[in-house]
């Protein structure tokens, strides 16, 4: 066992962990933050995406011991009060169905918008291509991220009622 200190959603934790413990299990089991999900065993689905020192990573590909002294943000810490513009965007534009991929999508999109505050549809599609969603067909996830981008830039918000002719 090895002792690590890690800050998660602004709270510092010191824990004894098995050197082989995956970060995603540290988050889900040791810290009981079950918003971060597991959808595969080959690092393809992105359901476990979190922010490590502000960078989106798949927490199933990292050992807990590797985050010693670092800063982690999960979906539970996305908004200190109320909803983050991305959370609002996902709700407003119907960017989720079953909700299982949603936390990973949200955390991925945080970094995407930080690097590119005004992404095109194609840039969003490539930007979330490491995260699988089986329910939505992605149309509305793209719109959700566009909504959040507009809100974070302080621009006029896009129409969120469905374009359903």
């Amino acid at each position: 066992m090895k002792e690590i200190t890690v800050t998660v959603n602004g709270v510092e934790h010191t824990l004894e962990v098995d050197p082989r413990l995956l970060l995603v299990h540290l988050i889900r089991e040791n810290l009981s933050l079950t918003g971060t999900h597991i959808g595969c065993d080959t690092s393809n689905c992105g359901a476990c995406t979190i922010l490590l020192d502000g960078k989106s990573i798949k927490s199933c590909t990292v050992f807990a011991v590797q985050v010693n002294g670092k800063n982690i943000a999960t979906v539970e810490g996305l908004a200190a009060d109320g909803l983050h513009p991305l959370q609002e965007g996902f709700k407003e534009t119907h960017g989720l169905h079953c909700g299982f991929c949603t936390p990973g999508m949200l955390m991925r999109a945080v970094e995407l918008l930080e690097k590119n505050p005004n992404p095109t549809e194609e840039e969003i599609r490539w930007g979330i291509s490491g995260n699988l969603c089986r329910c939505t067909g992605y149309n509305n996830i793209v719109r959700a991220i566009q909504y959040a981008a507009a809100k974070m830039r302080g621009d006029e918000l896009p129409v969120t009622d469905p374009e359903f002719v």
Binding site: G35, V75, K91
Partner: peptide
């Protein structure tokens, strides 16, 4: 139902 899903408060079996 979205309120819980977008805030990481859904409860799936593995939770």
């Amino acid at each position: 139902e979205d309120a819980r899903f977008i805030q990481g408060k859904g409860q799936y079996v593995d939770d």
